[in-house]
Every structure is written in C-alpha cells, then in structure tokens.
Design a protein around this nucleic acid. Sequence first.
DNA 1: CGAACGCTTGAGAAGTATCAATACAAGTGG
DNA 2: CCACTTGTATTGATACTTCTCAAGCGTTCG
Lengths: 246, 246
Amino acid sequence: MTTETLAAAQAQAPATPRTGCDDCVLKVGTLCRRLDHDAREALHRYGRRRTLAKGQTITWQGEPASHVANVLSGVVKLSATTPDGREQILDIVGPGGFLGRIDDRASAFSAIALGPVEICLFPRESFLAAVEDSAEAGAALLERALEDLDRTRRWLLMIARGTAIERVATLLLAFAERDTSPRHAFALTRGQMADLAGLTIETVSRQIGRLKASNIIALPTRDSFEIRDAETLRAIAGEQPGHRPH
Amino acid sequence: MTTETLAAAQAQAPATPRTGCDDCVLKVGTLCRRLDHDAREALHRYGRRRTLAKGQTITWQGEPASHVANVLSGVVKLSATTPDGREQILDIVGPGGFLGRIDDRASAFSAIALGPVEICLFPRESFLAAVEDSAEAGAALLERALEDLDRTRRWLLMIARGTAIERVATLLLAFAERDTSPRHAFALTRGQMADLAGLTIETVSRQIGRLKASNIIALPTRDSFEIRDAETLRAIAGEQPGHRPH
DNA sequence: CGAACGCTTGAGAAGTATCAATACAAGTGG
DNA sequence: CCACTTGTATTGATACTTCTCAAGCGTTCG
C-alpha cells in the first residue's frame, strides 16, 4: 500500500498540466462552481489537479498535512487504523468532497483511493485565504461540511446502537439507492463493509447469509444482490421516515 | 422532559429583550466576533437571545427545524433516541457551537440543555443569507464545523473499535482535561456517560470499578475521581500522540 | 421515615469476535 | 491446459465481552 503524502503526490506528478477551474470536471461541484471569477483565478493559481491510482494514499495518519484537496471524480475512503491493526472506515468521500484538516495539526486519518481518483490539491494556506475572500465558497463548503457532519452523526448512532444485521441492512439499502435496476452491485467488498460497519468479515458474511436465508435478499452472483422484501429490509435497518441514508 | 421546538422556545419567551451582538456573551465566539459591523447589524435584526432551563429541549427529533442557533453559554447535549427507547449522545456542544440543520429537512437529533443555557436563535433563511454575505463568518463557521466533524469521526472510531474500558478511560481523560487540580469531577452522570459511550450504565460502572481496583484511579467521593496512574490510563484509552480528545 | 434517584454488584443470556477449515474465482507460470 | 498461488467469501466451533434482568446500597429530599 502506497504511503504518499499530499506533498509527495504533488512532487510525484509534476508533469500534470496546470488545469484551470473553467474546464473543471467538478460540474456538480461544491467549490469552483460557486466561486466568482476573481476568486477562482486566485485559487486556481495554487490548485493542481492530480490523478491517483487505486489504493494510493492521499494523506497518511499521523503526518501533519500541508495541503487540502477536493475530490473531482472517483471515490476515496477515509479511514483510521487502530494500534492493533484493525481498520475503521469513517466515511466514503465522492466527487465534491473535502479532504484534509484546516488547521496544522497532524491528520488523524488516512484517505485512500478506492479506484482511480482525480483530486484538486491546494496548499492549506492559500486555500484558507481563498475561502476567507469568497463568501460563496465559504457558504458552499460550510453546507457540505454540515452535511458530512450530519451523515457522520447518523452513522455514529448506527454503530453505537445498531446490531450487526441492522448495520448490514443499512449498507445494502445504501448500495441499492445508487441504481434503479433490480440487481444491485455490492459497492464494497465484505472486508470494506466490515471496516465501515465496525464488524468482522465473518459477521458481515453471516448477516448477509441470514438475509438470504430469510428471502429478504437474493444473491444471483457473489458480487451482486436483489432485494426481495424491501419493506422488511428497511424495517430491519430501522430506517426513520423523513431522512434517507447518504 | 420538555419537548419544545425552536419556534416554541421563541414564542415562549417573548419578553426577552432584543439584545445586540455588541454586548454578546460570546467573547470567544465563532460567529458574531468575526462579522463586520454591517453583517452583524443584519444578523442581529433576526437573532434573538434565549435562556433555557436544564432539561429543556431545543430541537426535537423528527421535526423540521425552521431555526438554527448558536450556543452562547452553557452546555447542550445533542442526542438521538432509537425506536427501542435507548439514547445515544452524539456530541456535547458548548459555547460557540452551532445547532440545527442548514437545509429544511427534519432534524434527526434533539438538543437538550444539560444546565442553564443561553442561545442565540436565528430563522434559518436569514442566517444563511448572513453567512453568504460575510466571508469571515462563513470561514469561521466552516472552521468550527470541520473541527466538529473531526471530533465526531474520532469518537466514531472509538465507539466502533474501542472496548468498554477504552471508551470509559477516554471519557475520564476528557473530564480530567477540564481542570488542573488533582481531583476531577465526573462532568456527566453514569447514565450520560453510558449514553455517550454507547454502553449501558452497568457496564460503565463496572469499568470504573475495574480502574479503581487496579489503582489507576481513586474515587474520593462518588462524583469525583483522581488519576493515580495517568500513563496507564492513557495507554488504556489508546491515546495517539499528537492529538488530544476534545 | 419513606420514596425517589443514582450507583453498584451479581448471575445468566445474547451477540459478536476469534480461530480454523473450506470453497471459490482470478490470475500466473510451467 | 493445468497446477499453483493469491485474494475473497462462506461456514463451523468456541471464547469472550457486553447486555439484560435482578437485587441491594447510599444519598437526598419531601
């Protein structure tokens, strides 16, 4: 597993052309889209687009991060590793997501690309300056941060009070939300599901087995599933009416 | 337990004088202190200061919140109640903290005053407008939100991967950080510690008993403790060097 | 004094982790 | 093409942690 820091990533890919925000991939974007032209210019003087391969680490647990980043495309897992070697995924960050710390303390977490990922990388100081100059950018990032906070709190509740089958059912419903076809892909491996749900691989597998045995889901292949009884599945997940996962 | 919403709280205390931000209690404040005069004026046209008694609910789980608030003084617990009646405290919010959702969906959580609390209450729309007008306010709130996010993620890690004694040790260290005298108060009751740590009262009590039996802590009275072996306690808590709890 | 509340302690039950074996799929190299 | 390795998933037996239910204790307060 690569252990590059943001700075290292920047040094490693100096050939990447300086790309302006005007042709930014981030169409649904949080940041660039809501900056006025001047602010965008100022920020884009410092922002660099980088491409990361699957498994590449963007920030490494324990190192002070001099840079922050926005995810342009692809998916990143934000995770921490306990002293005894177990991993906990704290969030899955997709396009528009913010990575890094706003102060200069060491980051407690690692961000690892789950597939090919494009990010926009900023020195922390210039990023902060840009945010303080543009109210729109600040408001957009604030909105995003508060959404992240809300989602993290809901997941904290699930981890703290939910049983194994509740957590797995919630994950399956989240996977199912991503597409409309009846057959859904497991977006994560069993190991990643376990790391996200705070369980072991074996427990995740057993709960999926229980759901299959109860005919609540079916497993046409090993990496896809169909929901046979959505109502029961939602009931197991303890879904509150009025807000949906993710 | 009172179940008032923000709107109800506003209606309930109409006699409170409209207080300007210039004499705001929030000296270390996140918001008001960093607004320029015009923005402060604009916001203060809508902000109302409210005093809440211990146990009073500021927002109620499931209700759409039309207002947001900043905590001026006192401490609030942000918590959720599961369908089966157990409570999970998601965060303890002190002066400078932000309460509420920035969108109009129902709030998933309740905020309950742990003691006498002063808050500054804003209609959500005017609050948002003020943030979009003032880059400084946006930046300050963003900083705060990202801190909250970081702390919540650390606690999620602790809940997901930590054992009962690790969680309790972490809480004790957090209590001990609040004062310098050798004898520390339990800032929360056993029940609140359990709700925060995702445990039961009995388990919390047993872990405290274990720490006492191992001479790692002493219990001079029932609502205070002394740390006898700080190093071991920190080792149990699994404290990473480089960042401290809360 | 009795009631209410918060805390402690005990015994048994339940849920999940751990350890271990096996199965399956996808490469890889002979 | 087939053995072999590697990564991932399933299944079983057992141990351990925490929850649940229950009882008892100490303090405060009416």
